[in-house]
Simulated assay, not measured.
Amino acid sequence: MRWKIVPLSAIALELLSWASLWSCESPAGMALTFGLAHAAAAGTAAWGALGPLSPQRRAASKPTGLFLFAAAFCLPFVGVPAVALCLMVPSQGPTGAPEHFRVIEEPAWPETGGPAEALDVLGNEPLAELRQSKSAERRLALLLSTRYLGGDSAVRLQGCALKDPSDEVRLLAYGFLEARERDLSARIQALTQSLERTQPELRGSLHLERAQYGWELVFLGFAQGELGTHVMHEARAHAQQAVRLLPERGAPCLLLARLLLHMGETEEASKALEEATRRGLAPEAVAPYAAEAAFRERRFNAVRTALASMGPLSGMRPRLERLEAFWR
Rank of each mutant, 00 (worst) to 15 (best):
R138H: 08
L195E: 03
L177R: 06
G151I: 14
L246E: 00
R170F: 05
I188N: 01
L208K: 06
A179W: 06
L195W: 11
L217K: 11
Y213A: 06
L246C: 11
Q224F: 09
V231M: 05
G204F: 10
K163V: 05
H207N: 11
A154D: 13
T198E: 11
H233L: 07
A257D: 04
R180E: 15
Q224L: 11
L172A: 12
H230T: 14
L144T: 09
P200H: 04
E226H: 03
G250T: 09
F219S: 06
R182G: 13
R170H: 04
H207I: 02
A235W: 01
L162I: 08
A237L: 03
L246R: 15
R156Q: 15
D152L: 09
E248Y: 14
T146N: 01
G250S: 06
F219Y: 10
V231I: 14
L245R: 14
H238R: 13
Q241W: 06
E209V: 15
L206E: 02
L259F: 04
C253Q: 12
F219G: 01
A242D: 03
F219N: 07
T146Y: 02
L259V: 11
Y213L: 10
S153R: 15
L142D: 07
E226Y: 01
L157C: 01
I188E: 01
R210I: 04
L140K: 01
D167K: 01
R258A: 08
P247E: 01
R156A: 13
A239Q: 08
H207G: 06
